[in-house]
Amino acid sequence: MSRPTRDELVARLIRAGELEISGENPEEVAGYFDTDRFRFHGPDGFETDFAGLDAYFASLRTAFDDRTIRRGVIVMEGDRLACQTWIEGTFVRPFTQSPVGLLAPNGARVVWDLINIFRFDDEGRIVEEHVRTDNRAVLRQLGADAA
């Protein structure tokens, strides 16, 4: 099997994000990751594995309706791909995995404005992800002003 092309990796990344947001086809989602070796590095030192990332997206699906994900500028070098990501949803049920823990819904449209850096293995599976976002802006939208 040859190493996936840039376009193939971008398509896989987009599809994985769409499936995580929708909750459809968990088996397909897992195929886009090396679920044993995957490591997530988030804001404020948050670290987790594939199961933790999957649980985070499950909490988003529970708390937010009308969820969407968009990718912006995508840059690739070697086995790393960096991109802009926007995840949006309407906050209608309790959110268990906010940056400050459980939050009650406020009915607002919430936008996560992210910068992601993904590392892929030779099979095109995601093995590592670094994410940066403005948690203060997210918390304000969630109704838990961190000012």
Rank of each mutant, 00 (worst) to 15 (best):
R140E: 08
D113V: 14
P99H: 12
P43S: 14
V127C: 06
L9S: 01
E47F: 09
E123Q: 10
F57P: 01
V73P: 00
E123N: 07
A30H: 04
P94E: 14
D36E: 07
R12E: 03
I126G: 01
A16M: 12
G52Q: 03
V92T: 07
A104I: 09
N135D: 13
D7M: 15
S22I: 13
Q141V: 07
F38R: 14
G23E: 08
E128F: 09
D134T: 04
N116C: 14
L142W: 00
G45Q: 12
V100A: 12
S22Y: 05
H130L: 05
A108W: 02
E123W: 06
N116E: 15
G143A: 14
V110H: 06
I69W: 01
N106P: 07
E20P: 00
N25H: 10
D122C: 06
R80G: 08
D121S: 10
L19V: 09
V10L: 03
T96C: 09
R132P: 00
V75H: 13
A63S: 08
I87S: 01
F46R: 08
H130W: 13
D134E: 10
I14A: 05
F91Q: 02
T5G: 14
A30Q: 04
T96Y: 06
R70D: 06
R136Y: 07
L139V: 08
E128W: 04
A146N: 02
D7A: 15
H41L: 15
I69F: 02
Y56V: 15
G42T: 04
R71N: 07
T133V: 10
P94Q: 14
L60V: 13
Y32L: 10
D121P: 12
A144E: 01
S59Q: 08
L114H: 09
D44E: 15
V100D: 02
M76T: 07
W86T: 00
